[in-house]
């Protein structure tokens, strides 16, 4: 939560401008002026973490958006046309995406389109599609056999209308919970991509790149390497706990795929 509000505040204000470098003031330990010290280019780490939170959240959020936007309709279609060639094709397609080593594909995508936040979103988003498709299909199937759906069918509603009007609202809770999980995984994935230099590019701040930049400094100025790592850990931890809480709150019985 702290990081989310940090990210929100960063739109209006950060303690220091991270686009301005102050190399003589680099690698300072925490002081009153710089609460968490400065990094290797003399930038304020608090400001960097705030801006980095923005990047992480934006990338993970949009990647989840891709997953929901494409995965949920595919899952609904597959469930509505259960057992058909279409269902088979969608599910096989899912398996196929799962079969690809995700990081390798991310590297190839950035090799084709260049490194950057947008391509990180696409690379992470692609692997969210089968997750949502699978969860949606599984949950939707269990509703297709329920009485109220049968009633709707008898009333002559088309499968598309049933999917949208009756099934979607019923599986929404599940999707929200799955989203929080994919969101936290997205933050980890963004960090990993940025760490190997494939995520957001400077001057955009990114936790993964902060870690990569700081790793050789770990033995000189440990705080520079420690802070972004802890930021990732706490954010993901917070999101996962939030996901668990949501699940308990919304429906303690639902099952969520954690892959």
């Amino acid at each position: 939560m702290v990081f989310v509000s940090g990210a929100l505040i960063s739109f209006f204000w950060t303690p220091y401008n991270i686009e301005t470098l102050a190399i003589p003031q680099r690698l300072q330990t925490p002081t009153a002026a710089h609460w968490l010290g400065t990094d290797q280019l003399g930038r304020d780490i608090v400001s960097m973490i705030m801006m980095g939170a923005r990047t992480s959240i934006a990338v993970a959020l949009l990647a989840v958006g891709i997953g929901i936007g494409l995965g949920v309709p595919l899952g609904l279609i597959a469930a509505a046309r259960r057992g058909s060639m279409l269902d088979e094709a969608i599910m096989r397609g899912n398996d196929l995406i799962f079969a690809f080593p995700s990081l390798v594909i991310a590297i190839l995508i950035t090799a084709v389109f260049g490194a950057g936040a947008t391509n990180a979103i696409i690379a992470i988003g692609i692997f969210n599609i089968p997750v949502f498709a699978r969860v949606t299909r599984g949950a939707a199937l269990s509703f297709w056999s329920r009485d109220f759906i049968l009633a709707a069918r008898v009333a002559g509603k088309s499968p598309a209308r049933i999917s949208i009007e009756h099934i979607l609202p019923n599986i929404a809770n599940l999707l929200i919970v799955q989203s929080t999980i994919q969101f936290s995984l997205g933050i980890l994935a963004e960090a990993a991509l940025s760490y190997i230099g494939l995520g957001a590019q400077p001057p955009t701040a990114s936790w993964g790149r902060m870690l990569a930049d700081a790793q050789t400094l770990a033995s000189i100025a440990p705080h520079v390497a420690l802070v972004p790592g802890l930021a990732i850990v706490f954010t993901v931890l917070g999101l996962n706990l939030m996901g668990d809480g949501l699940r308990d709150l919304l429906d303690p019985r639902i099952r969520v795929a954690r892959t």
């Binding site: 936290s184 790592g229 706490f234």
Partner: peptide, 12 residues
């Protein structure tokens, strides 16, 4: 905690 720790950071 184990899920939240990036493994490359842990490796470092």
């Amino acid at each position: 905690l184990g899920i939240a720790v990036p493994n490359f950071w842990f490796a470092m």
